[in-house]
């Protein structure tokens, strides 16, 4: 497990704490993404920082509109107008991505950086055959023959558990079920054994049983190719079994990070606690599910200071006037809260 206190632009030396001295494979620092819409400029991602190490899975959790998907897109340089990466740094294996010309970014996409999306029904082009869509992904980065590319595509399909891949290659997406399509998308994304896979809620649209299968398959494949993952979801139960670390986003900011077990068992931020409380679980049967009152703020009018204050049971005057700063806690954790749920003294900054 990494000891790098996520979202802290900390000095290099502290990274050795958890016994891993290597530089992170993906390092995001103070990322700001804005959208210029009719009502004005909206900040969708506001100073997000985190690291992901080789083979690690980072769960990026938040409600819709929290900026988690935009963060994912920003990593691949796929933020489209009217969106814009305003500030920050994204480093892949030490190499700065922001400001890189589109040509060079394109070479990294699909090769070192890959992404899969939420709705498997729409991620594959309906009018192109599966083989076309997989072979083009291979040949976009490697100068191999059509036949060799086809062989690889077939093997990739076999690996994600698609039976008789040779036949399936010549099929069109509409002939596949949702789970099958997502498997094809995953196989395509992992064709080049990327360093980082950004997964934007890829299992949300699927049946629970299929969801579990696919999670297991992805985990195995990623481990095999040493691919690190940024798993974006609103579903804490998915994260619990999959991720090594977790970063909770709210209104464009990361409000809490830490090892999965730590965060889920002893949340620091009231918002994280609220999220955990609203997940149904076995040992709370019969008790009404807790809910976080209120709604996710519209990004056009984020409440001043701590954005969670109108919904927070612990909010005070301070929360309405002063923005809480990222504060490190023991166990390489971080949270932004004036009234943390853990009374333990913050680690020295």
């Amino acid at each position: 497990m990494s000891a790098e206190a996520s979202s802290l632009p900390s000095p290099q030396g502290r990274g050795t704490q958890g016994g891993r001295a290597m530089t992170p494979i993906l390092s995001v620092r103070d990322l700001v993404v804005t959208f210029a819409i009719r009502e004005g400029v909206v900040t969708a991602v506001n100073g997000v920082s985190f690291d992901v190490h080789r083979g690690e899975v980072l769960g990026l959790v938040g409600e819709s509109g929290s900026g988690k998907s935009v963060t994912g897109l920003a990593i691949l340089g796929l933020v489209d107008a009217p969106g814009r990466i305003e500030a920050g740094s994204i480093r892949l294996e030490g190499e700065e991505l922001i400001g890189k010309p589109e040509r060079e970014l394109r070479r990294l996409r699909g090769k070192r950086l890959a992404m899969i999306f939420q709705d498997p029904m729409t991620t594959l082009n309906p009018v192109l055959r599966i083989d076309t869509q997989m072979i083009e992904a291979i040949r976009a980065h490697e100068n191999v023959s059509e036949k060799a590319a086809r062989d690889r595509a077939r093997q990739a399909l076999l690996k994600v558990g698609i039976p008789s891949p040779e036949e399936r290659l010549t099929a069109y997406p509409h002939q596949f079920s949702g789970g099958m399509r997502q498997r094809v998308a995953i196989a395509t994304a992992l064709l080049h054994r990327p360093a980082v896979l950004v997964a934007d809620e890829p299992t949300t649209a699927l049946d629970v049983t299929i969801q579990a299968q696919i999670l297991a398959e992805v985990q195995e494949l990623a481990a095999e190719s040493g691919t690190a993952m940024v798993w974006i979801t609103h579903d804490l139960s998915v994260i619990a079994g999959l991720a090594d670390r977790i970063a909770v986003m709210y209104a464009g900011r990361i409000v809490e990070t830490g090892a999965v077990a730590d965060v889920l068992e002893r949340p620091i931020h009231p918002y994280t606690a609220g999220l955990i409380g609203s997940v149904p679980s076995r040992n709370k049967r019969g008790v009404p599910l807790a809910q976080i009152p209120g709604m996710t703020p519209s990004l056009a009018k984020v409440p001043p200071a701590c954005p969670f204050n109108p919904r927070c049971p612990r909010a005070s005057v301070t929360c309405r006037t002063i923005m809480p700063e990222p504060t490190p806690y023991d166990g390489a954790r971080m949270a932004r809260c004036h009234h943390p749920l853990i009374e333990q003294a913050p680690a020295a900054a």
Binding site: L113, F117, T122, T123, N125, A185, T188
Partner: peptide, 15 residues
């Protein structure tokens, strides 16, 4: 989404 996915695969805008 499939255009997004195509771009995420690293295809050229030409293709």
């Amino acid at each position: 989404d499939y255009i997004r996915f195509a771009r995420a695969k690293g295809l050229s805008s030409r293709r």
